Amino acid sequence: MPMNREFFFEEVRDNLFAGTLKQGQVNGMEAILDEWDANHGDKDDRWLAYMLATAYHETGRAMAPVEENLNYSAARLRVVFPSRFTAAQAASYAGHRERIANRVYSNKLGNGDEASGDGWKYRGRGLVQITGKSNYAKFGVADAPDDAMNDVKTVQIMFEGMIDGLFTGKELSNYFSPTREDWKNAREIILPGNLEDQVGMYGRAFYRCISYTTG
Rank of each mutant, 00 (worst) to 15 (best):
residue 76 R to W: 00
residue 190 I to T: 09
residue 79 V to M: 02
residue 201 M to Q: 14
residue 21 L to S: 09
residue 58 E to D: 08
residue 94 A to N: 04
residue 103 R to P: 03
residue 116 S to K: 05
residue 48 L to W: 06
residue 87 A to F: 01
residue 53 A to W: 04
residue 201 M to F: 08
residue 180 R to V: 13
residue 190 I to F: 02
residue 182 D to Y: 03
residue 67 E to D: 06
residue 15 N to Y: 11
residue 163 I to F: 15
residue 29 M to G: 01
residue 99 R to Q: 12
residue 12 V to A: 05
residue 165 G to L: 07
residue 164 D to F: 08
residue 138 K to F: 13
residue 64 A to V: 15
residue 16 L to M: 13
residue 70 L to W: 08
residue 115 A to L: 11
residue 151 D to H: 13
residue 210 I to E: 02
residue 168 T to S: 15
residue 183 W to K: 02
residue 18 A to M: 12
residue 198 Q to R: 11
residue 63 M to S: 09
residue 113 D to Y: 10
residue 82 P to E: 04
residue 150 N to M: 04
residue 184 K to H: 11
residue 155 V to G: 07
residue 110 G to D: 07
residue 106 S to N: 06
residue 173 S to F: 00
residue 69 N to P: 00
residue 65 P to H: 09
residue 170 K to S: 10
residue 103 R to E: 06
residue 1 M to S: 13
residue 153 K to P: 01
residue 84 R to T: 05
residue 13 R to G: 05
residue 18 A to T: 14
residue 48 L to P: 10
residue 214 T to K: 13
residue 25 Q to D: 09
residue 64 A to T: 15
residue 15 N to H: 14
residue 71 N to I: 08
residue 59 T to N: 04
residue 33 L to R: 01
residue 77 L to F: 04
residue 181 E to I: 14
residue 81 F to T: 01
residue 158 M to P: 04
residue 46 R to K: 15
residue 142 A to T: 02
residue 214 T to P: 00
residue 39 N to M: 05
residue 80 V to R: 08
residue 77 L to N: 00
residue 203 G to A: 15
residue 1 M to T: 12
residue 33 L to V: 04
residue 11 E to K: 15
residue 94 A to S: 07
residue 50 Y to V: 00
residue 165 G to I: 06
residue 46 R to T: 09
residue 180 R to F: 03
residue 212 Y to E: 07
residue 4 N to V: 01
